[in-house]
């Protein structure tokens, strides 16, 4: 049994460890470690395509996660106050946003946006006073929209679970003491749900930062980091990709660990 469990952990971590190890390899070999070097990192970070893809990914992940954190929290708070039927409708839509495969979300968003743009662009051209009307197209906006969908569902799910575990009595006590609803929210509810909101934000950020398939469909001419990595893998496996992969790995590792610590704090505070 013990040997089996150890081999499961080895199975989970050895491949990742190998990629990290060979990102420091001086040579190009994938099976022979010929010496330690950080050359591949220098090469990766000197690559302007890579750096701009990284910038795009950070902008998109930050914007979609921030929007999801704000709107998702609002939705979680609002759904508490909805009637059973409306709440079930929201639950179903959020569940759909999570369960529907990313490849379908990407396609549906692409199809819908292209259809909408084909109406809007000529209309815009007709109405535009100058002679260079703006062209709507795929890019930051479409990726943020599609990532925001999943992320919002994620944040709502996490914050809703936290609200459900909150004691109603403390909220009632606050209003009995003549606190306005806004004051109660600011002083009582918000501090308690803040760790979950932050955890939701970080998970949403991680999801967006790592997503390949949705962005692949709706990115237009923009390149995100996973799209860049995918394209480079297709050109052939090189130690430079190992270096990039290691950087991506550690970025998401940092995010997920922070999220977990925030969520655990929530769990221990609520006494679970």
């Amino acid at each position: 049994m013990r040997a089996f469990i150890s081999s499961v952990y080895l199975f989970l971590y050895a491949p990742i460890a190998l990629v990290v190890l060979f990102s420091f390899n001086a040579g190009r070999s994938a099976s022979e470690f010929t010496g330690f070097s950080t050359d591949w990192y220098g090469k990766a970070l000197g690559n302007t395509f890579l750096v701009s893809a990284l910038q795009n990914s950070l902008i998109i992940a930050f914007t979609s996660a921030a929007l999801a954190a704000v709107f998702g929290t609002m939705a979680a708070l609002g759904m508490e106050r909805l009637g059973a039927r409306m709440r079930a409708l929201f639950d179903a839509l959020f569940a759909a946003a999570i369960v529907v495969p990313g490849v379908v979300i990407g396609i549906a968003t692409l199809v819908a946006l292209v259809a909408v743009f084909s109406f809007l662009n000529p209309a815009l051209a007709a109405l535009w006073p100058g002679d260079r009307p703006p062209q709507l197209g795929l890019g930051y906006g479409s990726i943020i929209a599609a990532h925001g969908l999943f992320s919002m569902a994620l944040v709502t799910m996490i914050v809703k679970a936290r609200i459900a575990s909150l004691g109603r009595d403390i909220v009632e006590a606050s209003s009995d003491l003549y606190a306005t609803p806004l004051t109660t929210f600011r002083l009582i509810v918000l501090p308690q749900i803040l760790p979950s909101i932050l955890a939701g934000f970080l998970l949403a950020f991680t999801f967006s930062f790592d997503d390949f398939i949705i962005a692949f469909f709706v990115a237009g001419s923009k390149t995100t980091l996973p799209i860049y990595v995918f394209a480079s893998i297709r050109r052939g496996v090189t130690p430079e990709i190992n270096a990039i992969a290691t950087l991506v790995l550690f970025a998401s590792l940092l995010l997920i660990l922070t999220a977990r610590i925030l969520m655990r704090e929530k769990r221990s505070k609520s006494g679970e």
Binding site: I16, A30, V237, A245
Partner: peptide, 28 residues
């Protein structure tokens, strides 16, 4: 330790196996 890999890039984790199973990995 079990949960964390799920939240790290699937692309990178799949790439790791491409690297291991590829001609310069185990077959080599």
């Amino acid at each position: 330790l079990v949960v964390v890999p799920f939240w790290t890039s699937l692309l990178v984790r799949t790439y790791a196996w491409m690297y291991i199973l590829g001609s310069r990995g185990i077959p080599n």
